[in-house]
């Protein structure tokens, strides 16, 4: 049993739906980034998937828009302890990018414009569990929140949902990304509170 903090009452969440342990609900959309927001224009945006064999698959903005998009309503959870319920996104399931990709890799690293990286097991990006999104709440995704295109992996802490996405590299071994090299958990399941390694 934890120590009791005298005089602290707290405010119970109004939501009936549970949030992961140690999280609180917010209506804001806080921003956590390690540096200045990169300027990436949608018309010149490109991304690639590079397999462990070095084979590259690429998409430009028109190519991404040509893929079947979905509307996605999910809860998101940041390791800095805020959660936000029922956020609305529009984007392409990562599965749609992998129809032509041949790989034996079990791990992926997402790469951002600006140099950020984060590692995710490939299975966690597939089977309808992750998206490459370009709209948030019915509007083009703002640069502040990762626009024009970011990864969305809502079942993991939000640092895995790389902003300003420019590519995925596939790997046979798990290779830690930016925060994972700075002490954060390699997997980052909010429901198991996998915050720090």
């Amino acid at each position: 049993m934890a120590v009791v903090t005298r005089g602290f009452g707290g405010r119970r969440p109004a939501s009936e739906r549970p949030v992961p342990p140690g999280q609180y609900l917010t209506d804001d959309f806080p921003v956590l980034s390690t540096g200045p927001t990169p300027n990436v224009d949608a018309p010149t945006w490109e991304m690639t998937i590079r397999t462990e064999a070095g084979v590259e698959h690429g998409w430009d903005w028109a190519g991404l828009q040509a893929l079947p998009a979905e509307d996605v309503t999910v809860d998101i959870h940041c390791v800095t302890r805020w959660s936000k319920q029922d956020t609305h996104w529009r984007g392409v399931p990562v599965d749609a990018l992998f129809t032509e990709v041949e790989t034996a890799a079990e791990f992926a690293v997402a790469h951002s414009f600006g140099g950020y990286t984060t590692n995710v097991p490939l299975d966690d990006l597939l089977d309808g569990r992750a998206w490459v999104v370009s709209e948030y709440e019915g509007e083009p995704l703002a640069p502040l929140h990762g626009g024009p295109v970011r990864l969305l992996v809502p079942h993991l802490y939000l640092w895995k949902s790389a902003k300003w996405l420019r590519g995925l590299t596939l790997h046979l071994d798990d290779e830690p990304g930016f925060w994972e090299q700075h002490g954060y958990h390699p997997y980052g399941d909010p429901w198991s509170e996998q915050r720090y390694a």
């Binding site: 804001d28 959309f29 806080p30 921003v31 980034s33 540096g35 200045p36 600006g114 140099g115 929140h145």
Partner: peptide, 13 residues
């Protein structure tokens, strides 16, 4: 130099 700028933010965007 962008590479030498580190940021920490709080609050909504």
């Amino acid at each position: 130099d962008v590479a030498r700028i580190r940021t920490e933010r709080f609050g909504g965007g």
